[in-house]
Design a protein around this nucleic acid. Structure first.
Length: 171
DNA sequence: TTGAAGATGATT
DNA sequence: ATCATCTTCAAG
């Protein structure tokens, strides 16, 4: 039986968690009762106020406030007026950081993930340590993974555009 | 009050 | 390469 991950997993540095979250099992119970269990296959790290690509870089706002809290909380936001992004807050309170879930199983692409998992605004602030509709459980440890620059953040400039803060499972 | 930018995806 | 589509935030 797989066991749910708790704060001992989430309340750590995103850069430490990123390689470990690959292969962990995302469990999602859809409104109709369908249970989806898929391994995390791609994530990106957004870390701290100094990271220009991180939504918290300009300080706390109504949108990003959950990132300043403790780990395990879900940060949802809409991009391009149509795609919901699913992020899991990590780290200690006061240090805003999160992991953008870009792929689970064969579903690659942050917008596709939320569409398939039927996730939108109503997941903002959801606690993955306690929720009965979404959580993270043990999974196979991935040793074959790659890293590279994050997608879609050219505006952030160096060094942020070049940091290898995107992690994905090697096929 | 307004406008511009944006952690994307589907299509041409 | 373009478009679909709309929230957020900062400027005026």
């Amino acid at each position: 039986m797989k066991h749910r991950l708790d704060h001992t997993f989430f309340d750590r540095d995103a850069l430490e968690i990123a390689p470990e979250i690959l292969g962990k099992t995302l469990v999602r119970i859809l409104p109709d009762g369908t249970r989806i269990c898929l391994p995390v296959t791609e994530v990106e790290v957004y870390r701290g106020m100094e990271d220009i690509a991180c939504h918290a870089s300009k300080g706390m706002s109504e949108r990003n406030r959950v990132m300043f809290g403790r780990g395990g909380i879900i940060y949802m936001y809409l991009v391009y007026g149509m795609h919901w992004m699913f992020n899991i807050v990590t780290g200690e309170p006061g240090h805003p950081e999160a992991l953008l879930i870009r792929g689970v199983g064969d579903i690659i692409g942050p917008g596709r993930v939320t569409k398939q998992l039927e996730m939108g605004r109503d997941f903002y602030g959801e606690d993955m340590v306690l929720s009965d509709r979404i959580w993270l459980a043990d999974g196979q440890l991935i040793i074959n993974f790659r890293t590279g620059p994050r997608v879609g953040i050219k505006y952030a400039g160096e060094p942020w555009v070049s940091l290898p803060w995107r992690y994905w499972v090697e096929k």
